[in-house]
Nucleic acid binder design. Structure first.
Length: 468
RNA sequence: GGUGGAAUGGCCGAGAGGCGAGGCAAGGGACUGCAAAUCCCUCUACACGGGUUCAAAUCCCGUUUCCACCUCCA
């Protein structure tokens, strides 16, 4: 049996994963800054790390998964002005939107989801430690800065040199000793929210909360720190700087997911609303969007297109159809089984694409088994496929994906109506009146009902709508 | 200027010295009253130029193109 190997951004190599405490894994994932509705790039990160979490759990680890919510920052304050609403209402609104998106994609809720504004005390304590240790300074205007030149290991994650960095645009207007020093805390400005500190009223500056909250929930050292590729610098460098300067071991391993791109370019908020999660969920189901996002390797760019998404949904539909037919034939749900091939792929730095090839193979075998009426082989394939989908968070039998559309009464009425039509068609086929039989089928197709004849008799399904 | 990433068949998308992942599309076939679904078969690629090697998509050198980050982007 293979063991889990994961890539580490710090060393740029893949190595065996060994947790600090046997049997336990602590993960800190940089979650959302709740200043706009989530687009698929945001949820890709959520899905990728959810797959990691599920795989670790499946592998027998007790996983503590912390994903923060940054609910105070410049953009939220700007948005509040723009939307003419209190900053906390803006933050809450978008936090809910993220939660809904995660739920729609079956991203498991974190063990804990700390908000920045709920951890001001911990941030102040951290700043006190940093000042005592001489790594940070409060120039007296209410700001607190980290002095990066005192840190020997600064920028090791992004492999840059301090002197190569371009200076911040505002470097001249601040009290910084060095233009590359960054703000842990910002002095209050009129009208902005603020909290009292020993150095004056203010608010969190750089993402100090990630260091403070990772320490609060995962301790001085923890196993995995995750986030998007774009967080490597400066966000994660600064987290490392803050935490290590405080004497903490901090993250043992760094995992970064790549972006979703559009037309070769990184998706950004300026691309408009079309790639927001709730917009895409109008064209595909959550499980299909998740399948699409999860099927690329987490470290590869995923070039988004509506066509690719639609194709992916069709491909997933084939798997889903097989599983549902298996249930019809077997009379019970498949038992999730993790095949050796799937495990080997997942252990190889979460090689989902490799795992998918195994699913395709199992699907083919399963369909052959259905044709042959080999129940044992059907069950074997269905079990393997369900086992894989379970880890990928795309198990169609997962209650999280319970069909929401239509009432039970409406569904049974529809089923009865179509069954009636199919009985008429079967009668016509028996008397070789194919014109009448085809007329019924064509009529149903026109209504968006697909008819398939099988050994078990005709079956119907709602025709998958063509994506735009 | 600094740092990092990418270029694979009609398309998507893995792999990282040697029996050409996988999927979609296309063509052919089986099955079917005809379809649909399913299965079988076919097409077969590694940006460019050198080099190393018995063997290179994979390693080395160089080039081109694209993308990203450089102090509040997942």
């Amino acid at each position: 049996m293979s063991s889990l190997h994961l890539y580490d951004t710090l060393t740029r190599t893949t190595s065996a994963f060994t947790p600090i405490k046997e049997g336990q894994v602590g993960i800190y994932l940089c979650g959302a800054t709740v200043q706009a509705p989530p687009h698929i790039g945001h949820v890709r990160s959520g899905v990728n790390f959810d797959i990691l979490r599920r795989w670790l759990t499946k592998s027998g680890y007790d996983v503590t998964f912390i994903r923060n919510v940054t609910d105070i920052d410049d953009k939220i304050l700007h948005k509040a002005v723009h939307e003419e609403s209190p900053w906390w209402a803006v933050a809450m609104k978008y936090e809910r939107a993220f939660t809904q998106a995660y739920e729609a994609l079956n991203v498991l809720p974190p063990t804990y989801e700390p908000r920045a504004t709920g951890h001001i005390t911990q941030m102040i304590e951290l700043m006190q430690i940093l000042i005592e240790r001489g790594a940070a300074y409060a120039p007296g205007n209410g700001d607190v800065y980290l002095e990066v030149r005192k840190l020997s290991s600064y920028l090791t994650l992004s492999r840059q040199k301090v002197d190569d960095l371009l200076s911040a645009a505002d470097a001249d207007e601040t009290f910084k000793k060095d233009p590359r020093d960054f703000a842990l805390w910002k002095a209050a400005k009129a009208g902005d929210p603020s909290w009292p500190t020993p150095w004056g009223a203010g608010r969190p500056g750089w993402h100090l909360e990630c260091s403070a909250m990772a320490y609060a929930y995962l301790g001085e050292s923890f196993d995995i720190h995750g986030g998007g590729l774009d967080l490597i610098f400066p966000h994660h460098e600064n987290e490392i700087a803050q935490s290590e300067a405080a004497g903490y071991g901090f993250a043992r391993r760094w995992l970064h997911n790549a972006w979703v791109t559009a037309s070769g370019e990184k998706m950004s908020k300026s691309l408009g609303n079309s790639l927001q999660v709730h917009e895409l969920l109008k064209t595909v189901r959550g499980i299909e969007l998740r399948w699409y996002l999860g099927s690329a390797h987490y470290r590869s760019m995923l070039e988004f297109s509506h066509e690719a998404l639609a194709e992916s949904a069709v491909a997933f539909g084939r798997i889903e159809t097989f599983l549902k037919r298996s249930v019809e034939i077997l009379g019970h749900l498949p038992e999730p089984v993790t095949s050796n091939g799937f495990a080997a792929a997942m252990n190889n730095d979460l090689a989902v694409p490799e795992a998918l090839a195994g699913i395709s193979e199992a699907l083919r075998c399963g369909n052959i088994a259905i044709t042959a009426g080999d129940k044992a082989a059907i069950a074997a394939s269905a079990n393997e496929i369900r086992g894989a989908l379970d880890i990928l968070g795309c198990d169609p039998f997962d209650p999280a994906f319970a069909s929401a559309g239509g009432s039970q009464d409406l569904n049974s009425a529809l089923d009865g109506t179509i069954t009636l039509a199919l009985e008429q068609r079967e009668a016509a086929r028996v008397r070789k009146d194919f014109a009448a039989a085809d007329a019924i089928r064509d009529g149903l197709i026109a209504l968006g009902i697909t008819i398939e004849d099988s050994a078990q008799g005709p079956r119907w399904s709602i025709t998958r709508s063509e994506s735009k």
